[in-house]
């Protein structure tokens, strides 16, 4: 799926800004890719090409770096990112059960995004809260001592939020003539 003209423009602009900030040295490749992902949420093909061109690197080299590190995403993430810790402490305290609970509830596997782009589910290796295992990072919040019941709670909160937003939108639409 090729991005639309608008999207292409957006990507070009984002990459341009990052390159301006960080320069075009080889050693800046990783910070550049991080910057692009911070702005766009992922590394679109076009962005990697543009970076390769600016840094005068083979495109495959940029792709190689982008696929080596866990943090880089090649596809747009969901609106809410759920990262289940699968570090030692969390695993032993039932992290795998939590991951399975999310997989079951969202009907996706780890590493995937729901078709409605609401949630993406990832595993992360230790966020440093082992003392409060098992841990889940939901968007930017760290949830401690998560149980399968809490998994339902987390998702329910988002569902309610979304329903409220939708209602709000409808109301606003209704107001407009």
């Amino acid at each position: 799926m090729d991005p639309s003209a608008d999207e292409q423009e957006l990507i070009r602009a984002a990459v341009g800004t990052v390159l301006q900030d960080l320069g075009i040295e080889r050693a800046s490749l990783i910070p550049i890719l991080q910057g692009v992902q911070n702005r766009l949420g992922y590394l679109p093909s076009l962005a990697m090409r543009q970076v390769a061109e600016a840094l005068q690197l083979p495109e495959v080299e940029v792709f190689g770096v982008g696929t080596f590190y866990n943090q880089f995403r090649l596809n747009p993430p969901g609106k809410h990112q759920i990262k289940v810790c699968m570090g030692t402490a969390c695993h032993m305290m039932g992290g795998h059960i939590i991951l399975e609970s999310f997989e079951r509830r969202l009907s996706i596997l780890e590493g995937e995004t729901t078709p409605d782009r609401e949630y993406s589910l990832e595993r992360v290796a230790c966020v440093g809260c082992c003392a409060l295992a098992p841990v889940v990072v939901v968007d930017d919040n760290v949830e401690a001592r998560v149980s399968p019941i809490r998994v339902d709670g987390i998702l329910l909160t988002f569902d309610i939020e979304r329903q409220q937003e939708e209602r709000q939108e409808k109301r606003e639409e209704g107001r407009e003539p």
Partner: peptide, 25 residues
């Protein structure tokens, strides 16, 4: 400051250096 990008092997010193130089670790 140099931020890693999620690779345990980058804790290994030669990989860490390769990573700072802008390559896969």
């Amino acid at each position: 400051l140099f931020q890693g990008s999620g690779a345990f092997v980058c804790g290994e010193e030669t990989a860490l250096i390769t990573s700072i130089e802008g390559h896969a670790g």
